[in-house]
């Protein structure tokens, strides 16, 4: 991150770029990593709805796509709430870096 000085910041601490937090990647916080098992996925979208970190990607057609590991903090909510198919989860949590 380049150093910024007060002269170059907008007056009054106004942030002019909406959603600029996307420049700050929180994926490095993760110690557990969710893994998507597509064949068990019923496309219910619960994982997308309940993710606190907007880290489940969606295609233009509104279908579930991969995780966004740049931001996913590995909380495991998606895995716990995933109904999966026939009792088989479509998301499992694995230790990061293994």
């Amino acid at each position: 991150m380049s150093k910024k000085y007060w002269e170059t910041l907008p007056q009054g601490s106004v942030v002019l770029e909406a959603g600029s937090s996307a420049k700050f990647k929180t994926g490095g916080w993760r110690s557990m990593r969710p893994k998507w098992i597509e064949e068990n996925c019923i496309q219910c979208m619960f994982c997308w709805m309940y993710c606190p970190d907007m880290s489940v990607k969606v295609t233009a057609e509104g279908k579930r796509a991969e995780f966004d590991y740049d931001y996913c903090k590995g909380c495991g909510i998606c895995a716990l709430e995933c109904p999966g198919k026939k009792g088989k989860k479509a998301i499992v949590m694995e230790e990061e870096g293994k």
Partner: peptide, 20 residues
């Protein structure tokens, strides 16, 4: 859910609330 998921989030990732 399928329709909602096509929309754009108005609260972005990269925020710093705790995991979960």
């Amino acid at each position: 859910l399928k329709e909602l998921a096509k929309g754009e989030d108005r609260f972005a990732h990269g925020h710093r609330m705790c995991a979960g």
